[in-house]
Design a protein around this nucleic acid. Structure first.
Lengths: 354, 354
DNA sequence: TCGCCCGATGAAACCGAATTCACACTATCT
DNA sequence: AGATAGTGTGAATTCGGTTTCATCGGGCGA
């Protein structure tokens, strides 16, 4: 596969040096700026650079011991709202740090995740950020531990965003948000509005995010001396359709409830649609609360009360911590960001019993 | 800033060669696979690679004349629905081509776009994909032309996704979708439902996308012997809030209309909300049609009839074309993808006049 | 049996920049 | 004035692979 087709092949330091009448070393020095160069010389070199439209070759620079100029982001899907808002935060921080972002979607496939990390190892990125919850299995922890060490030995850093720490004493940066606390607050909000039979709707079983949110719900219930009846726990995919269909089923089965805790806004939106289509008024007859504060939350009618996650801050913090650690050999750094309820219009006091 | 902190510094070809008892050249040969290597030798090398957990250094490889292993994506915002679905398509194709994606958001700032491209030029990416509409000014065309040549001289390719061609005879790959045709179809749909006073809502003035969509609307009107009254053309930002507020204003001003063409789904969703809040029934009293078929379109109530854009195919096609051109020196490649209406529930026949 | 060609391998050059080392030249101090 | 510090510069080396180029050995046709 012969590639050619250049108009003017790109200039190198040598070309610039020749043009400016100096040595390549000098050109390199004015480029990096950390070495003394006479004013006149610098001017000549700068002019030559402009004339030749020279740009450094990042590969050559990286090879001769430069700082890595990229960071990597691995997520389930760039086009999925939660992930890409966090990615946006990482990207924002990366821009501040003068770095480029490599991004890859895994579609949730652990094998693909591994394949990507392998490709990434070749690239010598400064950090590898993994976004999103996962099944918290022993295999997962082991994979992460291996990865953390592999990256560390390449002077890179593994960063987990909204993902649990795979264990102590690992060279990993973990930035989570208070999943459990948000669920607790959301459920408390429903409870204080008089609701007692609350459906936990959606969330992949075994997923750490699901577990934490469910734990928060249960804790809130306990605080009221209640427990979650099994028939009100309905896990499932975090997609709109699941919320819709599962709610239809609950209605059809005659299950009693006055509120729904959607494990994310998509599921909650689906639930709202199903209730409306069944002639159930939201929030008068049934209250619905979501999670994530994704952009669609506003478009649901009634606008969805939900738990806000600091997506952007999550991403920014993660990268900042990973890139600026005082001791590169420091083991785990762990930060937990707060969440809070955003009250809109999908929750109302429970109707007085007839 | 002294970086260190490696456990085991990463192995090199030389290390592998020593371990396997062969020369570095041989290791390189089994790595690339295009050269004859004896079976036994290959086995030894492969084993050494495994034992040392060796991974090639992409920078070194790139330096010694390897194909670039990355492509770049530049968009307004990774977390904006339209852009990231196209990006997803590019990414999917990149995965097929064994390449990594560099991604950067510009926030719509042309200067930032230029800065990013400069950083990208250093990286020697195989292609640079720009996503999304822009103000079609002479400066824009000139910038793109410069960029196209600069990239071409670096054996790279400029790819424009959903953006107009900056001119003929440029080494550029352009993949657009039929913006005008989609708007024509959408408007025809409204017209055939009896609507005559149709609002063109949203779209940044001067933006190529806006222009094309407005042109489609006008063409459809002409086909019915009608023209667009200026008071029904209400350009504005493609955000939900604009749709909401602008619609409120139209209502307050007593402007007569029975249908709204939203320049995108977000604006249309805002319009629907404003109408509902004003007690206007959608679609019985006013029909609304959107554009883009973004994910929120489904969540609007009533579900939004809209124009579907093949986001994913757009991205995939763009990258495929850019990477596999028979003649690298070929000037512009230009493809236009079709669009089509997705009928949901936000459009109904016009009420008989009282 | 001799010569030829091809498969397999190593030595060495090269890609583009950064950096170390050495050297020349100037100020500065005694 | 001579020693000394310091500044600006070039030559050469290095980073980690890939790719000629050259060599060596063996199979095969004449």
């Amino acid at each position: 596969m012969a590639r050619s087709g250049s108009g003017t092949p790109k200039a190198t330091v040598s070309d610039v040096a020749r043009q400016a009448g100096v040595s390549p070393a000098t050109v390199s020095r004015v480029l990096s700026g950390n070495h003394p160069v006479a004013g006149a010389t610098r001017t000549k070199v700068l002019r030559a650079i402009r004339e030749l439209d020279y740009v450094v070759n990042a590969h050559a620079r990286a090879l001769s011991g430069g700082q890595p100029k990229t960071v990597a982001i691995i997520l389930t899907d760039v086009s999925a709202p939660f992930f890409n808002t966090v990615a946006r935060g990482i990207e924002r921080q990366a821009a501040l740090e003068q770095r480029l972002c490599l991004i890859s979607s895994t579609d949730g496939d652990p094998d693909r995740e591994l394949a990507i990390v392998t490709m990434l190892r070749e690239q010598n990125t400064g950090a590898v950020c993994l976004i999103g919850g996962v099944l918290d299995t022993p295999e997962y922890r082991e994979r992460m531990a291996t990865l953390a060490h592999a990256l560390h030995s390449a002077d890179s850093r593994l960063v987990l965003c909204g993902r649990p720490s795979p264990g102590p004493d690992l060279p990993v940066t973990v930035v989570e948000y208070d999943n459990e606390g948000g669920a607790f607050a959301a459920t408390s909000h429903l409870l204080s509005n008089g609701h007692r039979r609350i459906v936990f709707l959606g969330g992949v079983e075994g997923n750490t995010t699901t577990n934490e949110r469910l734990a928060g719900v249960k804790r809130a219930m306990s605080a009221y001396g209640l427990s979650m009846p099994p028939e009100l726990i309905v896990p499932g995919a975090l997609i709109r359709r699941f919320g819709y269909q599962a709610t239809q089923r609950l209605l059809a089965d005659g299950v009693e409830f006055t509120a729904i805790f959607g494990c994310d806004d998509l599921v909650a939106a689906g639930a709202v649609a199903a209730l409306r289509d069944a002639g159930v008024d939201v929030p008068r007859e049934v209250s619905v609360i979501g999670y994530d504060d994704l952009s669609p939350a506003e478009d649901v009618h009634p606008a969805l009360t939900t738990v806000h996650i600091p997506h952007d801050e999550l991403g920014r913090t993660a990268l900042r911590l990973a890139l600026h650690r005082d001791d590169p050999d420091a083991p785990e750094q762990h930060v937990v960001l707060g969440t809070h309820i955003v009250v809109r219009r999908s929750v109302a006091p429970r109707l007085p019993q007839p």
